[in-house]
């Protein structure tokens, strides 16, 4: 399967990763081979088959509406690369 530069750029953008030129070339080759192989699935006739996301028919697993958690701010922020005033921090999201 032939993967275009546009496709590589598109999936990289979706995955939020920046690829160097060599990486792009490598990615085109690898994805082409892998997706080409994956297309073998089409040899298998699956007409009328229900797509199966869970292997077993489990349903209706619920929690009751009861507060079980307290203030865990310190613990939750402990791993943050940057924090300020008890918040996680990112560059300005609006100009």
């Amino acid at each position: 399967m032939i993967i275009s530069d546009e496709t590589i750029a598109y999936v990289a953008a979706l995955a939020k990763i920046k690829l160097s030129d060599e990486e792009k070339i490598r990615a085109k080759k690898d994805l082409g081979e892998i997706l080409g192989y994956i297309e073998r699935m089409n040899e298998l006739d699956t007409d009328g088959v229900e797509p199966m996301s869970h292997a077993f028919p489990v349903s209706n697993v619920f929690r009751e509406d009861v507060v079980t958690n307290g203030d865990e701010r310190e613990e939750m922020l402990k791993n943050a690369p940057k924090q300020k005033d008890g918040c996680f921090v990112v560059p300005k999201t609006v100009e």
Partner: peptide, 28 residues
């Protein structure tokens, strides 16, 4: 990175049925 790109591709609009949904049928 490779698998994240494959994943992004098979779920992207226009390819979902041909890849992801088909895979769920093969799984079944």
């Amino acid at each position: 990175k490779r698998r994240m790109m494959i994943g992004a591709f098979v779920l992207s609009s226009g390819y979902y049925d041909a890849y992801y949904n088909k895979a769920l049928k093969v799984k079944a």
